[in-house]
Amino acid sequence: MGYLYTILARFFASIMQGAAGQLSLSMAGIFLLSLPVCYSFAAYSLGISYKKFGLSMPNAMLIAIVLTTLLGCVFSYLYTKVSKDSFTILSLGSILAFEAFVKSFDELTGGVLGISGIIRPSFIKTLPKLIIFSLVIMLIIVLVQYLIIQSPMGRKIRALKEHPVALESLGVSTKSTAYFIIISGSILSGIAGILEILRIQFLDPSFGGIPNLIILVSIAILCVKAQVRNLILATAFVIFLPELISFLKFPSALLGHMRVLMYTAILIILLRNISGKFNVQNREA
């Protein structure tokens, strides 16, 4: 039962991150590869506020979301300042930079040993209660995602990828739209990080990182069409398919590498298939 709860928790967290990836990567064409940083940053903010500064868990969660929003503001400012290529590389590099920072600043982050003993709030003390809580948060996020996609904001986001000049000529600020996408993506990723850390109750520098990015990008590429159904199906495919290798008799030391290999193979196949169809969506005139 514990294994099922773990998979469900990862599934719900991945849907939240997948929603962030769908907004930024799929719909807007913004290669916000720093979403794993927001994921880890929120988790570390929670852990540090709770363990180092002694805040209560609800306050620590609030602080974590506020700080992650600020981080999203930093990334959105960076997006408007540098070229697209530079932003992509810098956002990818931010993953390594953040990992270097948390490994080094050990007075605050615990260094390579991390932060342990993160206790869940009383209303989600047990794992089943946490899963139900995650399910509720996930449903709210999916509903909000659906409303965004169907709204004029959703059309602006799609237009940002397909024809930003036309969008500007209609009087819509591409900068504001980009800010909205990057900040909301960062918040969604942060919420996923908070829920994940409440599940595992331990934090170290390997939390998030490049493996998290691969999962996120796979989901975002799979749900290239702006539909919530695609998001859920894509997440289910990406999360549940590699679990099949658990049933194969591989040594435990190899399982992690096999999983990454499987994710990268899926991603390579997806990217080659989607090439040429990513930028322009066929719509009836």
Partner: peptide
């Protein structure tokens, strides 16, 4: 698809 190529290269 230059940025998709970056993702493929990363994978």
């Amino acid at each position: 698809d230059i940025l998709l190529a970056l993702l493929l290269s990363l994978a």
